[in-house]
Design a protein around this nucleic acid. Structure first.
Lengths: 248, 248
DNA sequence: TAGTGGTCTAGACCACAAT
DNA sequence: TTGTGGTCTAGACCACTAC
């Protein structure tokens, strides 16, 4: 049996203490000098041990202060097939998910007209260059940024209707809004991937560097025609995705 | 504007070369000594730069040989609501997904009787200690391990039926098998999370250390009664998950 | 045998936090 | 002012790979 390297042993000890609840969220980890004394290793080894935990996203360094256990409470994003429209008023799907976790959901948005680039055109089944409404969102739970999204809708569908500007409408959610102009959305396809966060995402979501995110490419269709497509970014480890699918 | 640290600059350069296709999968990265000369930095800095890319899962070190760009072709796992049963014979859902990516899907399995622990009992809506069939799977695409799964079914439902031992049946897939004993599965719920791989998963899936995985908790129900629950582990970055949901 | 990455030591300077 | 983490240098030994 080869002895595991010291930095992995230290990382495993700290990880166990965190997962067992012995070091709850917000707690400061032993300092690097503390670990050096405790395990009789050099500072480099202590640093590599902490780098492992940072890479796992369970601790966060604050320069000049210390390394702290991150909050791991998770929001749940529900993708419902049924009852998406069983609306209780103007509440958005995101606000509903946040409420489900006992948090207050708000969001910032910015809409503008745009010409579809190749990727968006392919997803919407339209010609590149065709006019689309682009809306970018930043969602916040209790004031903390928690989700990014960029949505595109073909203006051929919504131009000069009451829902042309998504957030000026008094109904929220793609399905409900489309219904208001007589478009019956009957299917949504989501493609979930995992990758490390980009610098912009780290900035916008207030993440520690080099953490992982879920990305979702979502497209709503009505009778086979795409009516909206969105690129959604969710911090990994802070979000669970729940899918409820009817069979047959 | 603060200058970014050297190791991040180097990591960004290498990442750009990889993503642009300049360094395709399987290519060897410049050696640490090469990076030291090229950027005029110490070995530690070269090492941290490569550690960033390892943490992102896009390169892989082979001791004594070099650091190599990992293959990023992605398998797609389809979670279908409709037409799950539009069976083309005894093909399993996994084999279908693998075929969709032009790969050959095979799997290893091991079934045994067991008593439900608290977690499994809660997911199946039965009493802790009740008998269940536990089946663990390791799925392979073109011989490479690509997915782990542990499934539990209540024996109260399947005992002494032709499908009691999941893999001895000549039909595959939970929906099809349950149908064979008159149980009409009508809903599946999947909860998708993201976390770093455990040591066992690194071993079983032949992953580089400290990479991320999707985990899925999946439960099939028939008329509101759970009939199967599974814990599925998929390497992040090698798998995309696609969900197709009908609306209303 | 020469080169490689994996691990580790023993220092250094800096900006920032806590006090 | 002291301690902290962030970054970096300049070495070392080892096991392993490739030749």
């Amino acid at each position: 049996m080869p002895t595991p390297p010291a930095y992995l042993t230290i990382a495993a000890d700290l990880r166990a203490a965190i997962l067992s609840g012995e070091l709850p969220a917000g707690t400061k980890l032993p300092s690097e000098s503390g670990l050096m004394r405790q395990y009789d290793v050099s500072r480099t080894v202590a640093k590599w041990a902490i780098a492992v935990l940072k890479g796992e996203g369970i601790v966060e360094g604050r320069a000049g202060s210390g390394v702290y256990v991150r909050d791991t409470t998770r929001l749940v994003r529900h993708a419902r097939g049924r009852d998406v429209r069983s609306g209780d008023g103007p509440t958005s799907p995101f606000a509903r998910d946040a409420a489900g976790a006992g948090q207050h959901g708000t969001w910032e948005h910015h809409s503008r007209h745009e010409q579809a680039d190749e990727r968006i055109a392919a997803r919407l089944g339209i010609e590149p260059g065709a006019p689309v409404m682009r809306t970018s969102y930043r969602f916040l739970a209790d004031g903390e940024p928690i989700q990014l999204s960029v949505s595109h809708e073909p203006l051929a569908l919504t131009k000069d209707t009451p829902i042309e500007w998504p957030e000026d409408s008094d109904v929220k959610g793609v399905v409900t809004r489309m219904d208001a102009i007589g478009v019956r959305v009957d299917e949504v396809v989501e493609r979930v991937s995992l990758r490390s966060a980009t610098a912009e995402e780290v900035e916008a979501l207030n993440l520690p560097a080099r953490t992982f995110v879920h990305t979702i490419e979502r497209t709503y269709t009505a009778g086979g025609t795409p009516v909206e497509t969105a690129h959604i970014v969710l911090p990994g480890g802070r979000y669970d995705l729940v899918y409820r699918l009817p069979i047959d």
